[in-house]
Simulated assay, not measured.
Amino acid sequence: MHTLPLFAENDPATLHPLMAAYPLATLVTTSAAGASDVHLLPLELHTPDGAVACLRGHVVRSHSLRQQVGEGDSLIALFQGPNAYISPRWYVNSQRSARLAPSWNYVAVQVRGRLRWVEDDPAWVLTHLAALTAAQEAGRAAPWSLDMAAPDYVESAARHLVGFEIEITALEGKRFLSQQRTEADRRSLVEHLERELSGMARDVARLIVP
């Protein structure tokens, strides 16, 4: 991920919450034969006390990830947070010179890691699914939990799934939020983004620091 120093963010304390809030990751893998593939999968950020964080996920046994990626293989997981188009009309400065171009504001986290398969362990899968669900249901007035589903249905599903963990070997974040612009420009961007119909645009507005 190409990142200039001004936009780099590598503090896990900042990146971990973003990964947890936007868990649908893009996994980029390369098989032993050299073929590349891309998968969209929700990943659980697992941060046990006193241990290095890892990512946990699951797929059905017939999934191409299971068929093509072996134990210990390297991969990339990309988490993308809110993003929004930036109109040149919103800039306060440089209007007279017309030296302006559209832009895009966004935040993203790139994880490099090694994959480990969790074979024939329905209890691990159930714990992982419960944690993944609880994270998304948190804050709801009436949160749904895994124990509300029929036990035989959940246990059957767990037996058809295979889990995996990704040992994080490198963590790199990018916050492209108009830091190169003036304070007046950033305040103007926040004002205009908050008027947009897109909820993501308003989310971006909350991330921009005037």
Rank of each mutant, 00 (worst) to 15 (best):
R187I: 00
T29M: 02
A130E: 11
T127F: 00
R175V: 00
R202K: 13
P17G: 04
L4S: 09
Q95S: 08
R66D: 02
G81P: 01
A142N: 13
P143F: 11
L129R: 13
G34F: 03
V60Q: 05
G81L: 04
W104M: 11
S178R: 06
Y106D: 05
A77E: 02
W117G: 00
R56N: 05
V162W: 05
R56K: 11
S31D: 15
L146Y: 04
V59L: 08
E183M: 04
G50S: 03
V190T: 12
T30S: 05
R89G: 13
G113Q: 03
H63A: 08
S36P: 12
I208S: 13
A184I: 08
L18T: 02
V162A: 10
L43A: 02
Q68P: 03
E183I: 07
R116Q: 12
H2F: 13
M19E: 02
R159H: 12
S87M: 11
N93C: 13
L132G: 00
P88Q: 10
E172R: 15
R206D: 10
F79D: 01
R159L: 08
A77H: 03
Q67S: 09
V59I: 11
T30D: 03
Q136F: 01
L129H: 12
E191P: 08
E155D: 14
Q68G: 01
A84L: 12
H16V: 14
S31Q: 08
G139W: 06
D152E: 10
A158I: 06
D37T: 09
L126F: 09
Y153E: 06
R195Y: 07
V60L: 12
Y85L: 05
E165V: 12
L43P: 02
V109F: 07
Q80R: 14
G199S: 10
T26P: 00
L146S: 04
N93T: 15
E137C: 02
T133H: 04
L45W: 11
V28Q: 10
P122C: 03
V38L: 10
R56E: 09
V92C: 10
P42V: 01
I208E: 13
L55G: 03
R89V: 06
Q180K: 09
R61E: 13
L40P: 01
A8N: 14
A142I: 09
L207F: 02
V162T: 12
R99S: 14
P210Q: 05
W104H: 09
D49Q: 11
S156D: 12
P122H: 01
G34Q: 11
A123G: 07
G72C: 11
Q110A: 06
R175M: 00
R99E: 14
F176S: 13
S198K: 11
E167F: 07
K174L: 05
R195E: 13
I76S: 03
E71C: 08
R187D: 01
A142Q: 15
L4E: 13
P48N: 00
R181Y: 02
A20W: 06
H128A: 00
A25R: 04
L6K: 15
P12A: 03
D147N: 15
V190D: 08
S36D: 12
L45R: 08
F7R: 15
L15S: 02
R89E: 15
W117L: 06
S97A: 14
L171P: 04
A142G: 04
A32N: 06
R181T: 01
S64V: 10
V28H: 06
H2R: 12
T127G: 15
